[in-house]
Design a protein around this nucleic acid. Structure first.
Length: 744
DNA sequence: CAGAGACTCGAGGAG
DNA sequence: CGAGTCTCTG
């Protein structure tokens, strides 16, 4: 038997061998779909197909990375296969071809924040009241229009007569004009411009069709109309297209994803082969039964039941804590317990949540307990203000037409250039149809600017010097030069000394990312570096093998698996989210249920569902009932645990009560004080420490330090240690810190 | 005209 | 709590 067929069941083998023509694989969770895709690559290469003729598309960076690794493992030449997200593939194409659409190759990519900002200015120019129409909402409408592949003029004819949508149409039009003038695209454009390019230039399309003779698309149920169009165009020549999907895991409806794409697939590609994979190899029977019992409450699904031969007797644990801190401590203690009792490593654990906000308390608790963790996705690195500032310099250097970036850095650090001056330059730029940068260069021609133009000229000279420098130097050198030359660290320190350290560290990370990029890129260019930054591509996630607990959203966990999974915030109002709950929309609720299903099916051996009776939301206390999905689980699979009040409640209780709380809600303040009382709970007797206050101990990361205090903190001791000047005073939970006493 | 401080309002998810 | 806007002051 060929190696690429080993250890595969019948339908899996069939899917691997069916390489010619159109193939739809309906693959349930854990049914080995990634395995099928990677083996399929191996099979194709074995048949003599060049790896350069293969294309594999995924939705998230994480999925792309996973597949890239596995493909490279499975077959020789696998590393040469294009495995990428839709967005990064399209950017690669556009960097080569976009001149056909009148942009230059150095185009800037605007993220959703940027988009919203531009939309706000569009609305101001059009005199649309932003209190009546939220810029973010309009941005969403426009984005959805683009997902549906609806152009400005189509949108106008469709909606021009409606008051609200007519206004959206106006903004859409102006917004596209501004993007065009700035030589910039937004995230949606990345794909829509590629489709447009292919429509306008059949030759270019043909080039890529011939290149990608075999196309594979993962998570096909998540494709929206635009992506669907793109795939179909690319596959039109050879028709060798394999899509893999599962309607039960469709969780991107809010992004225009359309389950119908799966049905239309069979229509569009006549004679398409359909293969179903229903045997689950991942989870225990209990976990799978749990998943099935939840998902069967959805009405809109093709009926299918996953089955497994796996055993396992670990029930699903539902834990309800007093507070979100309590919940976090429960999770951490369980991880600690299992990792020592069952000899597991930290990377065996994942904590999943509906929204990024939930991660804060968990991450904070991990940090305090010295438990190594890693947050995937979420607050994007390039979203930090300081990173945006330096990136804006880079973007402006790369693309002088980029107005938004110009505006961002013109007075950062403060150069005494204020709104009035900027307004004058802007007016001049508009009058003469110039970019802000070009207008600024002609500041001597602008009315009313006699004195201030010194600072403007100094700024454009600075940019010119950077531009010159960038031509002969690496991206890394450029980043360092910008930070140094503009005195950015000093600026950060003077603005906010408290946050300086963190921000400065982020800058270090940016510098090292640039270095990593320079080292790995075949042909290092500033615009490619910027693309990778915007798309959160490769450079974001090096060193992945390390042993840490994974924290990520339910959306991000798709395609992954872990021995132990926690789903935190298992409450009505979180999962399902409050919007789905309050809107009463069955459709939305069913998507939340699918999200829940995705989370459950990530677990191999043990699943925890956790909730909190009270949690903090924007400085207010929030109480949610347990998730309604809990009631849908066959109760014999469940084991419930209540808070034993042995974990530390909210830390802030003892030290700080928000002024607002004091003023508005005296009764809540009482509750806080009571929590403070609860805190004094002795640590269990079975923990003994080999050191005491006053001893010198050594820590793996921070080195030698002096023990200042040992306090009972929940089920463990909290140890306060003073390290040298580099690290200062830190607190750890004794069980995690692995502190060693040093005899002195 | 720049910058600090007061003030309001809002909170999903990926690239 | 935080970001974004508005208002006041030097």
């Amino acid at each position: 038997m060929k190696k690429f067929l080993e250890n595969l069941n019948k339908p899996q083998q069939e899917a691997v061998l069916y390489t010619e023509g159109a193939l739809l694989v309906l693959a349930g969770a854990g049914s080995g779909k990634t395995r099928v895709l990677t083996r399929r690559c191996a099979c194709l290469l074995d048949k003599g197909v060049s790896p350069l003729n293969l294309l594999a598309l995924t939705f998230t960076n994480k999925a792309a990375r996973e597949m890239k690794e596995r493909v490279a493992d499975v077959c020789d030449g696998g590393d040469k296969i294009w495995v990428s997200t839709f967005h990064s593939m399209c950017v690669r194409i556009l960097r080569r071809e976009i001149e056909a659409l009148g942009y230059t190759r150095d185009f800037t990519i605007y993220d959703s924040d940027d988009s919203t900002r531009i939309i706000t200015t569009c609305m101001a120019e059009l005199n649309i009241n932003k209190d009546k129409f939220q810029p973010k909402g309009i941005a969403g409408e426009i984005s959805r229009a683009k997902d549906e592949n609806i152009s400005v003029s189509e949108y106008e004819t469709m909606n021009g007569s409606d008051f609200r949508l007519g206004n959206v149409a106006k903004v859409y039009k102006l917004y596209q004009k501004k993007l065009r003038e700035a030589n910039a695209v937004d995230f949606d454009d990345i794909i829509s411009k590629t489709v447009e390019l292919f429509k306008k230039n059949p030759d270019t399309l043909e080039k890529y069709q011939s290149r990608f003779k075999y196309i594979m698309v993962d998570e096909y149920q998540d494709t929206n109309t635009l992506q669907y169009n793109l795939i179909h165009m690319l596959a039109a020549k050879y028709g060798n297209i394999c899509v893999v999907g599962d309607d039960d895991q469709s969780i991107y409806g809010w992004r225009g994803a359309n389950i119908r794409n799966i049905l239309e697939f069979e229509k569009d590609f006549k004679g398409a082969k359909v293969i179903k994979l229903t045997q689950n190899y991942r989870s225990t029977k209990i976990i799978l039964d749990c998943a099935n019992s939840v998902i069967q409450n959805n009405t809109e699904r093709k009926s299918k039941e996953l089955w497994t031969q796996n055993g396992g007797d670990e029930k699903i644990t539902f834990y309800s804590g007093d507070t979100d801190f309590d919940e976090a401590y429960f999770i951490i203690n369980e991880i600690k317990r299992l990792s020592s009792e069952k000899n597991m490593v930290f990377s065996d654990f994942a904590v999943l949540y509906r929204t990024h906000a939930t991660s804060r308390v968990i991450a904070e608790s991990c940090f305090k307990n010295n438990l190594p963790y890693r947050i995937f996705g979420g607050v994007n690195f390039s979203n930090y203000e300081e990173i945006k500032d330096i990136s804006a310099y880079l973007k402006l250097i790369n693309n002088p037409s980029d107005r938004l970036s110009f505006m961002r850095v013109i007075n950062v650090p403060k150069r005494g250039i204020g709104l009035t001056t900027i307004g004058r330059v802007e007016e001049y730029a508009n009058e003469h149809n110039l970019s802000m940068y070009d207008a600024a260069k002609q500041s001597h021609l602008i009315n009313g600017m006699s004195k201030k133009n010194l600072s403007i000229t100094a700024f454009t000279d600075l940019i010119d010097r950077f531009t010159e420098f960038s031509k002969t130097n690496s991206v890394n050198a450029l980043v360092e030069k910008i930070i140094t030359d503009i005195g950015y660290r000093d600026e950060l320190k003077s603005i906010n000394p408290d946050k300086y350290e963190q921000k400065s560290e982020n800058l270090d990370v940016l510098v090292s990312k640039a270095l990593e990029y320079d080292l790995h890129a075949q042909d290092s260019t500033l615009s490619e570096f910027l693309s990778e930054m915007s798309l959160g591509a490769d450079i974001d996630n090096l060193n992945e093998e390390d042993n840490r607990v994974a924290l990520m959203t339910l959306h991000n966990c798709k395609g992954l698996e872990f021995p132990v999974v926690f789903i935190a915030g298992f409450e009505d109002g979180i999962l399902p989210g409050y919007r789905a709950v309050t809107s009463g929309s069955t459709k939305e609720l069913e998507e939340e249920r699918r999200l829940c299903y995705v989370g459950i099916t990530r677990a191999r051996e043990k699943l925890y569902l956790t909730a909190a009776k009270k949690r903090d939301q924007a400085g207010r206390e929030l109480s949610n009932p347990p998730s309604r999905f809990l009631g849908e689980i066959d109760q014999t699979l469940l084991e419930r645990q209540e808070s034993e009040k042995r974990f530390r409640p909210r830390d802030k209780a003892t030290t700080h009560v928000s002024p607002r709380l004091k003023a508005d809600k005296p009764h809540l303040q009482k509750a806080y004080e009571m929590n403070a009382y609860d805190r004094k709970i002795p640590a269990p007797k079975d923990v003994t420490l080999e050191y005491a206050a006053g001893d010198t101990v050594s820590h793996m990361k921070y080195g030698k330090g002096e023990v200042l205090a040992i306090d009972p903190g929940g089920a463990d001791y909290e140890v306060t240690i003073k390290f040298g000047d580099d690290f200062g005073i830190k607190k750890f939970m004794a069980g995690f810190a692995k502190l060693k006493k040093i005899e002195t």
